[in-house]
Design a protein around this nucleic acid. Structure first.
Lengths: 193, 193
DNA sequence: TTTACTGTACCGACTGGACGGTTTAGAAAA
DNA sequence: TTTTCTAAACCGTCCAGTCGGTACAGTAAA
């Protein structure tokens, strides 16, 4: 008795719980089913509790974007470290990170919902646009001919697109060939005018 | 005299009017603003009148998809005729049709809304998935090495993706270079079996 | 050629439910 | 006893879909 209890969890922990809950709903049912009540329920708290952590839905959606983008960028940074600083290193890391994330079908489904969400959530869309602008800048400065580098980036993005929406996506064999070819193209003289 | 008068317009005409109205709303304000009331108003009729032509919103959205997909495929067929049946002809037509459509910023904005809509409208999504499966089949049978053909298709799709969402899209110069290079790649021995 | 009827196109008030957000009351840890 | 956090009832708005009705063109029997 008189046991001293800390808070059940910290605010940061609760936020993580909310991100996980919201993400699971996005994977299973999509954005249109992601109501505040449902997120709260899935996270094991009340709507009021949820809104204590995020003042409104826009803030929640923005935070979910940041959360998942953070995961992607963290991974991108790790892979980028691994690749060193040879010409095209960053582009290779971008390709590897993209393929890695989007090959998991749950992640693909999640991103399909997130990208759809941008239509209704302008601030999230603006954030993503800025990310791509930053990435494109890295692409252009990755040590390859900028045009070729752009072409390769778009190929990766096209793969992402097709996996995300399941638009005639490559099978495993095709994907392996593609990844190898992309890596070759980064290294090959073709891309070094 | 004794002129026989029909209704002010035919049902088909009214449907066209509705497609135009709905599309304009998608361009200007996005899917979340495309309510039945607003579509009706924009088309110059009442909600009841609108629902006379489409029994519910799902049917309307499906029809809008078919309408725009029809426009794309018509253009694709024309360009495909033009290209003849040299190896890679269909892939070139696909690239030209895609770039042509998505380069217009209103069309890009429209498609961004349409693709977002798929998240909430399963039947529209299924239809689009089937389209891409059909296209991928044509890609594989376009007379090039199927893997290379797939890579080129994904590059085109990536360009589409970046233009549609304005994710670090290429500028005019870059786009011209890309299109030329894509055509070259189709023709180059690299992509031949 | 009048009258009665049918089908098509269209109208707009209304309803029922969903959902974002507020409020209030209070528990629990510090 | 103040701060942090939770719960749940409640409110207002929005919106898809319903429904009773109007307008009018063609059809055909009387």
């Amino acid at each position: 008795m008189g046991q001293k209890l800390g808070p059940k969890r910290t605010a940061a922990d609760t936020r993580q719980l909310i991100f996980k809950a919201a993400s699971q709903i996005l994977i299973d049912e999509g954005l249109s089913s992601m109501t505040l009540a449902k997120v709260a329920q899935q996270a094991g708290l009340s709507k009021g509790g949820l809104l204590y952590h995020f003042p409104n839905k826009v803030a929640l959606v923005d935070a979910i974007f940041e959360y998942h983008n953070g995961i992607f960028e963290d991974r991108l940074n790790v892979l980028s470290q691994e690749e060193g600083d040879a010409p095209g290193a960053w582009l290779k890391a971008y390709a590897r990170a993209s393929v890695e994330q989007i090959s998991d079908s749950e992640t693909a489904s999640l991103y399909a919902s997130l990208f759809a969400a941008e239509e209704a959530y302008a601030s999230a869309h603006a954030k993503m646009r800025q990310k791509y602008i930053d990435w494109q800048e890295k692409v252009e400065n990755s040590g390859l001919d900028p045009n070729w580098a752009l072409l390769i980036r778009l190929t990766v993005d096209g793969l992402w697109f097709s996996q995300m929406h399941q638009y005639g996506p490559p099978n495993r064999t095709q994907q392996d060939w593609l990844v190898n070819k992309i890596m070759e193209l980064v290294d090959s003289p073709l891309s070094k005018i």
